[in-house]
Amino acid sequence: MNMNYKPFIEEKTKRINKKLNFQRWFYSILGIITISIIVLLTIEQIRDMKKESNELAICLLLIAHSVAVLVSMLSTAIFCRITNAVLTTLTIILLCACTGAHFYIRFSLYRNQPKEDLHLVAVRLGFVFILLILLLPWTIIMVHEYQKNILSDKRMLNPKSTAFSWFLYLDFLLISSLIILNIRNQSSFGLYHILFLSIGILLALLWLYMGIRMTDKKTRHGVFSTIFYILSLLHIIYLGHNIYGAVTEYNMLLKTNESTLFSLLIIIFLYNGTNVLIHILTILISFILIDI
């Protein structure tokens, strides 16, 4: 009796596989097109801005977030894992929050700032919301259906290790964002900023790699944990220095009634506050992870 049903089960599985393959690549292509438009609009804003404009850091940050969304989206389409889907969701939400906060602060909170690129920034924000509406339901439904219909013998995920991986990835995005946000404008962007960006991103990547190695029971070693916590401590010191510098700069601008940097500084405050919370949670979860 089982032998008679086997061809029907195999045929059903093939149909499900074909449907899911079409869905994941169809929505991935739509996502890639949307991300490409967002990046092109941001590049166009950089081309049109003056060298003294303080919007450069925000533009570079949006490009970095867009690339992160693209990589995460493709990994979800290729591997169809719950972890990849959640990371895609977190990355899109972060991109949407950054774009929305920047638009509100610059054009609603401080109305006296220049608005020559209002139309371009508004159109970009619209495409970011389209991306959010398009891909959030897709990642949830697609992965759920894939695991329900195909991965009947899937391995159970370790909840502690999975949660740590999510916080690790989000923390890395925030760390990289704060490094990028130290740039002010094209006229002041020199060798110092290039070195700072290079060293900062490399250390952040090293920290991320050490964290990933800590989640692997087979390769976990005290060296990985030691380097991870040393770099985590350095980042806490950097966060404190970054907050102090932003507060000092904000107070100086208040005295001179200069508001061109206000939107960037408020974004820096928001990212610092979020990063402090996420970084502390990442470290706390890493302590729990060691006892697995």
Rank of each mutant, 00 (worst) to 15 (best):
I9W: 12
N17C: 10
K18G: 04
K19W: 05
Q23C: 04
F26N: 11
I29R: 02
I35H: 00
Q45K: 08
I46W: 00
E55H: 10
C59P: 04
S66T: 03
A68C: 06
L70R: 01
S72V: 06
A77S: 15
I78W: 15
F79T: 12
N84W: 09
V86K: 06
T91H: 07
A97N: 10
F103P: 00
Y104M: 13
R106S: 01
F107A: 00
E116D: 15
L118A: 05
R124H: 03
L125Q: 10
L125E: 08
G126K: 07
L136C: 12
D153A: 05
K154E: 08
R155F: 07
A163P: 01
L168S: 14
I179P: 11
N182W: 04
R184W: 00
N185W: 00
Q186T: 13
H193K: 14
H193P: 07
I194V: 14
I194K: 10
L195M: 08
F196C: 09
S198A: 15
L202G: 08
Y209T: 03
G211M: 05
K218L: 11
I230W: 00
S232V: 02
L234T: 05
A246W: 06
N257V: 07
L261H: 04
F262A: 02
S263A: 14
I266H: 11
Y271W: 07
L277D: 04
H279W: 11
L284G: 02
I285G: 04
I288G: 12
